[in-house]
Design a protein around this nucleic acid. Structure first.
Lengths: 168, 168
DNA sequence: AAAGATTGATCCCTCAATCTTT
DNA sequence: AAAGATTGAGGGATCAATCTTT
């Protein structure tokens, strides 16, 4: 991700409307993850990242995904995922096996207990997403949000098609 | 922040448009902080939270704020702020003094070197915000984003008036 | 006793180094 | 040698406990 270094003397400062939009966006971006984490931690004892991992596996064929692909889906590094899956494995929610087709890959699979955990956790999480994000918006604003999100995630280099496989 | 516990058997699942909007929002919310942190870390050697603290002080009267108020502005806990300010103090960017009016408060003040750090860092940060968020949007979308942000931050219990004091 | 602030322990993430399979 | 994955060390965030001032 290359930001053209601000070499010119005068940066393009934000006008009034841009500034207001950015302040609102910043508020969301830095407070929403904490709020979602808090709900999941309180009601299910897991982090949002852990939930994302379990949910992604629950929607995959055979409830299985390669570690590297799963890391991409969950927007995390492979190292982070490896640490997290180690913990999830201790709880017997996930198990790991080498990929028979290519031994370099590791395949993570959701166990029956892991499936139950997702089923038990999903409704509360969806409800939190509704209350914090979707319910406060009009139908038109939901549409606008989708379009804005498409453009910004594009600038961030995120592939929404792939993301579509998962998430509540 | 009270989420009504999902006691009803059937949660209200997301329809197609809601799901698309949420996936886009989730992409932003979990990738944008990392992107902004990366720019600041690379170009200035500080985290986004540290930048927020320095920037908030730079815009305050006497370049000074009480710790508890500053923690609110920066969307962080007082404990987190205390740890961070300790580090900023080591770099001589901030200094702390007891509030003369009420000794329970601690007042954080930006030093001259801290001011210079903000001046040197702000243009690159604003440029990143432009490239990742504002430039990809039309003027109408910037307006929509402001309105959406107002509603969602409202649901999150954030006071945007107070926030307006800071942020690039 | 309450409010503001700080501290230390613990947990989690990041980064670099390493290991395994191809 | 390259790709995928794991590991351990180091740094920052969180939480509970503590300290200070009112």
């Amino acid at each position: 991700m290359a930001y053209s270094a601000a070499v010119s003397k005068e940066p393009r400062w934000l006008d009034h409307e841009e500034r207001a939009a950015w302040i609102a966006m910043a508020g969301i971006v830095f407070a929403l993850p904490a709020a979602l984490d808090a709900q999941l931690q309180r009601d299910a004892g897991i982090s949002h990242f852990e939930y994302t991992v379990l949910a992604a596996l629950s929607e995959a064929d055979d409830r299985s995904l390669r570690m590297s692909y799963l890391a991409d889906l969950a927007n995390g590094s492979l190292s982070r995922l490896s640490h997290v899956v180690k913990r999830l494995e201790r709880q017997d929610w996930v198990k790991r096996t080498p990929d028979p087709d290519d031994g370099r890959y590791t395949v993570a699979t959701l166990t029956e207990a892991g499936w139950d955990k997702v089923v038990a956790t999903a409704p509360g999480h969806v409800e939190a997403v509704r209350q914090l994000v979707l319910d406060p918006l009009t139908k038109a604003q939901v549409r606008h949000l989708k379009e804005i999100g498409t453009r910004v995630t594009g600038a961030l280099g995120i592939d929404l098609e792939a993301e579509g496989l998962r998430r509540s």
